[in-house]
Amino acid sequence: MTVRPATLDDVPDIVRVCSEGWRDTYRDIHSEAYAEAVIAEYYTPERVASEIGPSDSGQGWQWDGWLVAELEGQVIGAAGGGPTGAETWEIFVLYLDPAKRRLGAGRALLNAMTAQALAHGAREQWVSVTQENEKGLPFYRAMGFEVREARESVSESTGEPVHSFRMARPLGAA
């Protein structure tokens, strides 16, 4: 298993992994309309291509660029995040090919993002996880994340309720 910064050549694989991973994770949680609206907003080739490298949101957070996990030359996972404060770093996305789960890609991607967080001087790493996400919640709990807050919102695209947990874990001193 190798993790590396993504290149433009990885865009189709990132789109595939995130779209398939999103559908697989949320098929029993959200409607198909909601799933397709999220995919159409976040996982298009154009958007992913524009996010390949680091960027500043101009809204108080940064994006460190996409990372991909490869196994035998095949992209099986994609992730990204960035600093959200002087000592905080957020995981914005982490998805795996549904057929390639439990091979270590999630842990490898999280480890690479943790290295990015520490390089920024972060002391805490955060993630938002849908409360009903029985794939993500056990993973993050096993990696030392704890629920700090429960949030409720409504999808702008479909009007569906969205229930999420804000989870965090401490990181070692930078």
Rank of each mutant, 00 (worst) to 15 (best):
E41Y: 04
V68T: 12
G81S: 04
A108F: 04
L103H: 11
R23Y: 06
G106R: 10
G144P: 14
Y42M: 14
W89Y: 15
G65K: 03
Q59P: 01
L67K: 07
L103I: 12
K135C: 02
T25F: 00
Q62L: 12
Y140C: 03
E132I: 06
M1K: 00
G80D: 03
E32A: 13
A99F: 08
I39N: 10
S31T: 13
C18V: 01
M113F: 07
V154W: 13
G21L: 04
P12N: 11
G53A: 14
E32P: 02
G136Y: 02
G82L: 07
G73H: 09
L110M: 15
D24E: 12
Q59H: 14
M113A: 02
W61N: 06
V154I: 15
P170V: 10
P54S: 04
V147F: 01
V48S: 01
M113S: 00
A86R: 13
E156T: 15
S19Q: 05
S157T: 15
G80V: 13
E149Q: 15
G106I: 03
W63G: 09
G77M: 08
N111V: 10
E36F: 08
A35D: 09
A33C: 00
I14A: 03
Y43M: 10
V93H: 12
T114C: 01
D97S: 11
G172V: 00
